[in-house]
Simulated scan of single mutants.
Amino acid sequence: MSAVPAGPPVPSPDAGPVLSGVRLRSAVGPAIALTVLSVIFIGCSAYAVYADWTTWALMQRLVSDPGAVGDAELSRGESLFLLASSVQSKALIVMCVVFLVWFHLVRANARVFAQGADRLADGVAVGARFVPSANLWLPYRIAATTWVSSRPLGVDDGSRRFPSALVNVWWGAFAAARVLGWCGGMAYSLAESPGAVRYAVTTMLVGDVLDIVAAVLTPLFAIRLTAMQRTRSAQHPAVAAVRP
């Protein structure tokens, strides 16, 4: 990696300033899009929670009195559950795509602010989510490093304090929701009795509630980190002209 030039970089008419071959890029647009999609996903997850609870109550009635639930009611309950799961899954995929775009941008910007702080390549921020097992801890490591690298400079000790609890709770809720959703889905597909279905939807209900928690925290994390990088860029002479 080349050394930082002694003087300020010459601005380009169609590109931001470059520091050691890395270009700052705006993450504001993806952060706004991610916020909108998070709200939509919260609505889809709330619908999934309703479907989970409806199915749980139906299975509870079936366990207590098998003759109290007819075939038509069972069919409607199953259709509601499957529809809610499908809608939620599609919304999650769209939100994750936009999140990955935003995540790649802020990770690349963080490497400008703290060069050498993390040896993982920028592409790992995207690819880590598709690696089995690693997708539960590697993205968290990248997010935590990006958060620390993007902290604005303070007046006294050189670093303004920004708590990392938001990162920890956000990723913990997201990872737990994914695990519970997978376990509940497997249990549902293998269930052969009302009691087994009730157990499966209970697991999925808890996972869907955690999905809502993670979806609430996702835009908070994105907006806060984007704002931190915007402030940090104003404090860095070499990149002051670009506000991510």
Rank of each mutant, 00 (worst) to 15 (best):
A3C: 06
L74F: 04
S133L: 14
T203Q: 08
T146Y: 01
V39T: 05
L153S: 14
S159I: 12
V4A: 11
G195W: 01
F113E: 02
G77A: 07
F221D: 01
G7M: 11
A134C: 11
A46H: 00
I32D: 09
L153P: 05
S45L: 06
P132L: 12
L82A: 14
R178L: 12
S189T: 06
Q88K: 12
G195M: 03
A108L: 06
P66S: 12
A175E: 02
V209S: 01
G43Q: 08
V36G: 13
D71R: 10
P194N: 04
A234T: 14
L58F: 07
A114W: 01
S45K: 02
V167Y: 06
A177F: 02
S89L: 14
W170D: 02
G43R: 05
Q235G: 11
A144F: 02
I142V: 15
M59D: 05
D71L: 10
T226V: 11
V206E: 08
A238Q: 07
R230H: 13
D71N: 07
S233P: 03
P244F: 02
R25A: 11
N135S: 11
A227D: 07
V39F: 07
S20T: 12
V206F: 13
D122I: 09
S64G: 08
M204P: 00
P9H: 13
T55D: 04
P66L: 05
Q88M: 09
W137G: 08
A214R: 02
S89A: 15
W170E: 05
T54D: 12
